[in-house]
Amino acid sequence: MNENTSNPHKAVISLTTGLEDPEKVTVAFLVAVGAAEEGRPTLMFLTKEAVRLAVEGVMQGVACDGCPSLPDLAKRFEVAGGRLLVCSICFDAKRLDQGTLVSNAEIGGTIPMWRWIGDGCATTFSY
């Protein structure tokens, strides 16, 4: 496998699942953390139940034996510069409070996501 830590391509991870499937959340965050810690600008687009993960205090627990904790993954993602874009329609439909968002999250939809990607390339993953 070739190692390229100076790759400028952005990474976008789309996540629809919340804590009802903590293993899927763990995998999505592992992919996002890996991209961000390798220097890629990284955005997680949270939709459906995943929007709750952007609320302070929700990322709790460990998905499986040997898995990193969800709070640790969230912190590593934030420290590495990762951003959370939270679907505005999904967030509002769940009547969540924007004042409770974690510091690296913002409300937005597909247009802000496409603006963030811009004209360059982006590697995408969907969970």
Rank of each mutant, 00 (worst) to 15 (best):
V102A: 03
A35C: 14
P68F: 13
V55E: 01
A32L: 14
R40V: 02
V31E: 06
V79T: 11
F45M: 10
K94G: 05
G66Q: 11
I89L: 11
A54N: 04
L96P: 04
F91H: 06
D72Q: 10
D72Y: 03
A50F: 05
L101Y: 09
D97E: 14
S88C: 08
D65E: 15
I89Y: 14
F45G: 05
V102Y: 00
V79L: 03
L96N: 01
R76Q: 07
E78D: 07
N104P: 01
V55F: 03
P71D: 09
G81N: 13
V31N: 11
V51I: 07
A63W: 10
L96F: 04
G39N: 12
E78Q: 13
A32K: 06
C90G: 10
E78H: 14
L73K: 05
A32T: 07
E106I: 02
E37H: 06
E78M: 05
L53S: 09
A93P: 02
V102Q: 01
D72S: 11
G81P: 12
E38L: 15
E106W: 02
G39L: 11
R40C: 09
S69I: 00
R76I: 04
A63V: 10
F77L: 15
E106N: 06
V31Q: 12
I89D: 08
C90R: 00
I107D: 08
L84D: 03
K94Q: 12
R40K: 14
D72L: 07
T47A: 12
L53I: 01
I107W: 06
P71H: 02
V58K: 09
L70I: 02
A74S: 15
S103F: 05
E106T: 09
R83W: 01
G61I: 05
A105V: 04
K48D: 13
C90A: 15
M59K: 02
N104D: 00
T100C: 11
C67G: 03
R76V: 03
R52C: 13
V51E: 04
V51D: 06
E37V: 14
C64F: 15
P41W: 09
R52Q: 13
G82C: 08
L46E: 04
M44P: 06
E37L: 13
G108F: 07
A93H: 07
L73I: 00
L43P: 02
M44E: 03
G81V: 05
E49I: 03
C87L: 05
G66L: 10
